[in-house]
Design a protein around this nucleic acid. Structure first.
Lengths: 295, 295
DNA sequence: GATTAGACATCAATAGATTTAATGGCTCGA
DNA sequence: TCGAGCCATTAAATCTATTGATGTCTAATC
């Protein structure tokens, strides 16, 4: 059994609406003869005439009358669904972004982008895993790395350098360390973080790194920063994310020493043939914006 | 803007169900490569991937997930509608039949046909106009004529001969006419019917046909017959339709003279290439059946 | 009743879209 | 590391859908 000739159904719908092969042909940009062929195909499939041929056009037969609304609805549903998807495709920008970056850097600045491009709405996909762009409907992302992801275009945004910060209240209570090595005596937040040894070495501290005070271990910079702010100890975080706090004095940068593992924050997006306008807009804006952030 | 590639949607549906291009190709009797092509077409139309390619098949992307149920439903709705129509096409026999024939001849006999072919259900389309078979979904009809309709196959069923009938009660009250000419003195039902002059002439009555008694004018044999039965006068009707009444004596055939305009009752159906089985069944049955009716 | 305009059917030729077959690359699991 | 399973790609083959020309039919008009 041959299956429903799908190509015919659009023709059928048009003819059913216009009650006229010639006009339908016109609407569909084909010839009257092609319409006739398609309708015949469908009638053969149905096993019965669907239109009654009249002198000034055609009218639906009772069976055609039954089919017409079903087809119209099916086409409308599918068309509408695809339209919505394409609409979203153009107007919603989905950015995969790590939590810290979103809350400490991007969120405060994103309204500026929205003012610049009000037709684009922005959605953050906040997760720490490395998402697969094409398959999850994600347009671009912010990643920490070396800018050499295969298949992705990347633009360096911010330094991945990190430095110890503490609140004035903490320093007042426990005293401000004078040398990097003094920090070993402080309450380090997340003392077993891999970044601490890196920072100590790059700050010139040699010998065994024995931390003497107990520290809280937590795992996102966001919270590390928050804990430092509330006087819970010394946190080692990307300084770029705490510009505001440093400038306003609510967090103190203990030494002018930025350590780095060589990784930085990048904007990345797939190397596709045609970059969507919304991604272009975002790229241009965020690059410009990141230039106004130190580091 | 190019329009929804309808050919792709069946492929999409299959792939969405099976989560596998190769299996879908198998189901659709095409190659994996053709499936790949069709899906790409649809993805180009959507402007976004609809499937996420994985090592052991594919999975729907979020957008594909949105489209899949819509397409499945659209296909199911259309498929079901066509299926129902074809089903009806094979199992419902629509007969266009004039009122008198239906009620006086066909209806009493049709149960026999239904017993013979229980899988076919019969629908009468009762109307006096000559319907257009192909366009109104009518399979066959009973017509009064000469059996020479162009484009239609016809089988003679019953004589179109007519003869005057009256009820015993009427005859008792007004006396039974002894000669055809006597009838001019009776209450003729529908005296201006064209059939009356035909009958009188064929019965050998010459000269002016002056009817002396007022008569009721009505227009269907069904009612003429009914009126005659109830003693309202003498009705001129197709005798074939009143066999039962004549045999049981509730109507009396006044003379053994059947007049005819040369027309008879025929079974007709379109000269199509392939006659549906249900029509074949009906034809064979009704021809056989009509042989058991006088005239 | 002849004529005309409008509309669908049909046919052969053709363009073009689909499908195929073959091949290559990718991922996962053994 | 290898093999199995699966999708993408390509060029060629196929076949469907479309075209353009022509024929037929119907209703309306004169």
């Amino acid at each position: 059994m041959t299956s429903l000739p799908l190509g015919s159904i659009r023709v059928f719908d048009s003819v059913a609406r216009l009650q006229n092969f010639t006009k339908a042909a016109d609407e569909l940009n084909m010839t009257q003869s092609a319409v006739s062929y398609q309708i015949k195909l469908l009638e053969d499939f149905a096993g019965t005439p669907l239109f009654q041929r009249r002198a000034r056009g055609v009218t639906l037969t009772p069976k055609g009358e039954v089919i017409a609304p079903v087809i119209r609805r099916a086409l409308a549903d599918m068309g509408e669904t695809f339209r919505a998807i394409r609409e979203e495709q153009n107007s919603v920008l989905v950015i995969s972004v790590i939590h810290t970056f979103a809350s400490n850097w991007l969120t405060p600045r994103i309204t500026d982008f929205q003012n610049l491009h009000p037709e684009v709405s922005v959605r953050f996909d906040i997760s720490s895993r490395l998402v697969d762009f094409s398959s999850e409907g994600i347009d671009c992302g912010i990643r920490l790395g070396r800018g050499n992801w295969p298949g992705l275009t990347s633009h360096r945004l911010l330094s991945g350098g990190f430095t110890p910060l503490a609140s004035p209240a903490y320093l007042e209570r426990y005293g401000r360390p004078q040398t990097p090595a003094d920090l070993l005596q402080c309450h380090l937040i997340t003392p077993d973080d891999n970044w601490w040894p890196v920072w100590f070495r790059q700050a010139g501290v040699e010998g065994p790194l024995t931390m003497t005070k107990p520290g809280v271990t937590i795992d996102t910079q966001q919270i590390i920063g928050g804990l430092a702010l509330s006087g819970g100890g010394v946190g080692l975080v990307s300084s770029a994310f705490f510009q505001n706090e440093i400038e306003s004095g609510t967090l103190v940068k203990l030494f002018d020493i930025e350590a780095s593992t060589g990784t930085n924050y990048y904007l990345v997006y797939p190397e596709t043939g045609q970059l969507p306008a919304k991604v272009k807009f975002f790229r241009d804006w965020i690059i410009d914006c990141s230039c106004n952030t130190k580091f």
